[in-house]
Design a protein around this nucleic acid. Structure first.
Lengths: 345, 345
DNA sequence: TTGGTGTGATATATCGTTTTTCTTATAATG
DNA sequence: CATTATAAGAAAAACGATATATCACACCAA
């Protein structure tokens, strides 16, 4: 039997000898209430340990002071662990949201779910941040719908021209360029690319575009035969590398479209008696926390998750406040560690 | 100018030719409404893309269908990244909450903040999960207050006897025991312990207790001179190891109270020309994602974050539903990898 | 005929705020 | 002095649902 009689604004009103709306105003420091009354009300509220009921407040004011973060994945439900890059993003978004005085509602959704209406329509949140990967073709459709409905949302991902909705993403093309350029400068001529060959994952496609730009810049050819399918898991990187080895094409370096792919690649190479970086040089993408501790420490393209989280949060907030915002592209950085070894002439 | 006229239950009622409360019932499949009417109402609701307003619902029903996760840290606000172990927990709790059909509100709080009333008192959540580390003495005080208020909450951490509140934690003593035993079996006599010497971090204290039990079990002495202060960061592990080396005590192995400490220790050892595991064997604690990719791959004590997340969520839910629950202790596992090398006789 | 029972819905009260409108006392103005 | 402003607050009306009480009606038993 727990005596949970939470005090309400009416209780405070009685004690302070004022009307209930006055309490509401006083607590929000409204100038419509005299300083004296304000202080008296606030003191009493503090003594009673009073907290405004957010549901009542939100209902009346039609604002929730909450953002929703929707993580979606293409993969099977069975996966127990979240992609480390997204996990890092989750952490940074959590922090950024807190810093702006908002609450954050975190949720997982399969891409197929009906998240369209789930959050903003139900008044759970004022705005939504989408984080994930998957098939963008269906995604764009859904986004268009959301956009027509006037929802406030930002997507982490490639900034696509002429698409509805707001995007915040890294400059994948630049990242892909930096990675390939680094390898080319080290004298590698045949650089395999492990990423997506189809056009469903624009991030990977852009990274490959950067890869080709780096090649043409130095008068090399980006050979299609060196391009292999790999997605977001260590396992797929492993498989892709085995495939690469089987085809027998000549190569001395690999540019991986994600660090997880790189982890799998290193494993596959090692199992086939190839040493990194001595025999094969490797560059990753993301700079997940594990990257620097790999053996060898992974040279990779860093996506600044800290800045990304802030940019995402700031963007939705501006959207919510009807300020002008446009999609933004964050710059990436090459982090040189040991997986590409010394320059070879 | 966005036409955001969200339909309400009244709108549905008009269209369906019934009263508004009937709509409410029909949508919740109440048997008080005839099947026919129910289906008609539901169809119309679907067509209008209607979603119940959670604030109104929560206000009336005094339930939020939401859990709050409070991450707190002792450390400076400046830290940009979250401890990887807690990040993993965050991921698993997110998943577990979603599986139970609840929403999850995630927040950071410094331990000094007034989170007491922030969530449940404000009706933001039905229950709270606390996750973090810090000085337990002040923590217990606060918890007692919460408990008296009849709040529903669970803390991740050491199960402490005679304390108010519900705890879910790993069996730290057992973990510490497993780690030390593994090293002792490999023939090590002088095993340094890097953790907390004071009693402020019960997890670490328990791990050390297990360490001593393993020693006494084989008739060895747990020497106080081999115990060093280290907390939750890589940096502190690094410093502790330098200190260990400076004192000049003889040792051939280190049991680290966390993987992050182990990372720092390996770094320090390597800088001083000592090889792991050839010269010094190392065991960690946690099994963070990075652990298996370290060089050498880290032998460590795994805390099953997946099970932990589920246990935490299930516990709060039972508390909320007034079912009987008691604190639970999850078992830990020794994960043997390469950092302890081959048995030395 | 009267009264009881069950069914399917309606009417009304309620949750705890914020917002809008109204009141009253006092001060300022011409 | 009559009038208008201003201040400070009260009263009432939302917000959009759920919960409780009530009603109309059909059916059946006594």
């Amino acid at each position: 039997m727990k005596g949970k009689n939470k005090p309400t604004s009416v209780d405070i009103a009685h004690l302070a000898g004022v009307s209930q709306p006055t309490v509401s105003r006083a607590l929000r420091d409204s100038p419509l209430v005299s300083l004296e009354t304000r202080q008296r009300v606030q003191r009493i509220a503090r003594e009673l340990n009073y907290k405004v009921d957010v549901n009542a407040r939100n209902l009346r004011s039609q604002r929730t002071n909450t953002l929703a973060l929707l993580l979606f994945e293409d993969k099977s439900e069975g996966e127990r662990f979240i992609n480390p890059f997204f996990l890092a993003m989750l952490g940074s978004i959590t922090r950024a949201t807190a810093n702006r005085g908002y609450d954050l509602l975190v949720s997982f959704q399969q891409l197929s779910d009906d998240w369209n209406a789930e959050y903003e329509d139900a008044n759970k949140a004022d705005g939504i941040i989408f984080l994930g990967y998957g098939d963008y073709t269906t995604y764009i459709e859904r986004i268009s719908k959301l956009d027509r409905q006037g929802a406030h949302f930002v997507t982490w991902g490639p900034v696509i021209e002429n698409q509805p909705g707001l995007f915040v993403g890294c400059d994948n093309e630049q990242g892909g360029y930096l990675a390939a350029k680094h390898l080319l400068e080290k004298g590698h001529k045949n650089i395999a690319f492990l990423g997506d060959k189809s056009k469903d994952y624009p991030e990977f496609r852009d990274r490959y575009t950067g890869y080709t730009r780096a090649h043409t810049e130095v008068g090399e050819e980006a050979k299609e035969a060196l391009r292999f399918n790999a997605f977001f898991s260590e396992e797929s990187g492993y498989q892709a590398t085995l495939e690469l080895l089987e085809t027998g094409v000549e190569f001395s370096a690999i540019s991986c479209a994600s660090d997880l792919i790189a982890v799998g690649a290193i494993k596959a190479l090692r199992q086939n008696g190839l040493r990194v970086p001595n025999d094969i040089a490797i560059v990753g993408f993301d700079d997940i926390p594990t990257a620097e501790h790999l053996a060898p420490a992974l040279t990779t393209i860093r996506q600044d998750t800290f800045a990304a989280g802030q940019a995402l949060v700031d963007s939705v907030l501006m959207l919510i406040n009807d300020e002008d915002v446009s999609s933004s592209l964050l710059t990436t950085n090459l982090i040189v560690r040991d997986s590409c070894g010394q320059p070879q002439t």
